[in-house]
Simulated assay, not measured.
Amino acid sequence: VNINRNLERAVKENDRVYLMRVPPTSSLSPLPAFAMVKPMAMSEVLDASKEKMFASLVPDNSAKALSRYTEMVDDIIRTQAEKLQQASELTRVRLKEMELPDSILALEGNFTLPTSLKEDVEAVQISGGPAGLESELQQLKDLRRVNQELLVQTEELLQKESREDAQFRSQFGTKWTRPQSSTLTKNLLDRLNRFAGNLKQAADSDARIERSVREHSALM
């Protein structure tokens, strides 16, 4: 049916558009034969002496093991790539904090110092260079010591007040109508704890600054 329909459409198109002369069927030469398959002797196909007939077949357990191995390798590669990316980002941040490689390029004369770093260098120079930094570090130590002493004194005063409150409450009983010390001094204790935490953070920060100054003092 499709052949007849296609023939009718082709005839109509030729009559209306192409106007090509159609030769009679009797004048056409017969179509040559075409070999669709290559004949082979069965002895060659079934000959197992040359190669294994099922060499390309893989057992199911081997295929599963290969799949698991491939997944494991992919996981290792992905994990290592993530670690590399994280390490690269951390390195970039650390270098940025140390103004590298801009500082090295500036020393070699191939690059100008970043504005922020240039301002820091000028501030150090104005304060007296390395000697000025040492003086400021000593001032930080003195201030930290004074603040620590004030913290200890305040803690001792609050503890003394708490002991006296407990003593008077035991001595006078119900006649001692003042609110308990823990209630009255709660806000002070909270502020004192925050102050102690701030001092601890400041001490850690000062230690990092001092260590950095010591490590880079030879370059100043």
Rank of each mutant, 00 (worst) to 15 (best):
Val1Ser: 13
Asn4Gln: 13
Asn6Ser: 11
Asn6Thr: 05
Glu8Ser: 07
Asn14Tyr: 10
Asn14Lys: 09
Arg16Ile: 12
Met20Leu: 15
Arg21Trp: 02
Val22Tyr: 01
Pro24Asp: 13
Leu28Ala: 13
Pro30Val: 09
Pro32Asp: 06
Ala35Ile: 00
Met36Phe: 12
Lys38Pro: 01
Ala41Lys: 02
Ser43Leu: 03
Glu44Trp: 02
Leu46Ser: 01
Leu46Ile: 03
Asp47Trp: 02
Glu51Leu: 08
Met53Arg: 10
Ala55Asn: 12
Val58Pro: 03
Ser62Gly: 04
Ser62Asp: 13
Leu66Phe: 10
Ser67Arg: 12
Glu71Gly: 02
Met72Gly: 04
Val73Gln: 13
Asp75Trp: 01
Ile76Ser: 11
Gln80Asp: 09
Ala81Trp: 01
Glu82Tyr: 10
Glu89Ile: 14
Leu95Pro: 03
Glu97Ala: 11
Met98Leu: 15
Glu99Arg: 08
Ala106Asp: 02
Leu107Pro: 00
Glu108Ile: 05
Glu108Cys: 09
Ser116Gln: 07
Asp120Gln: 09
Val121Lys: 02
Ala131Ser: 11
Leu133Cys: 14
Gln138Met: 12
Gln138Asp: 14
Gln139Pro: 00
Arg145Leu: 13
Val146His: 11
Leu151Trp: 03
Thr154Glu: 11
Leu157Ile: 07
Asp165Asn: 13
Ala166Gly: 02
Ala166Val: 06
Arg169His: 02
Ser170His: 08
Trp176Glu: 02
Thr177Lys: 07
Leu184Met: 14
Thr185Trp: 08
Asn187Ala: 14
Leu189Phe: 00
Ala196Val: 05
Gly197Thr: 12
Asn198Leu: 15
Ala202His: 06
Asp204Lys: 11
Arg208Ser: 04
Ile209Pro: 00
Ile209Tyr: 05
Arg211Ala: 15
Glu215Ile: 12
Ser217Cys: 03
Met220Glu: 08
Met220Trp: 10
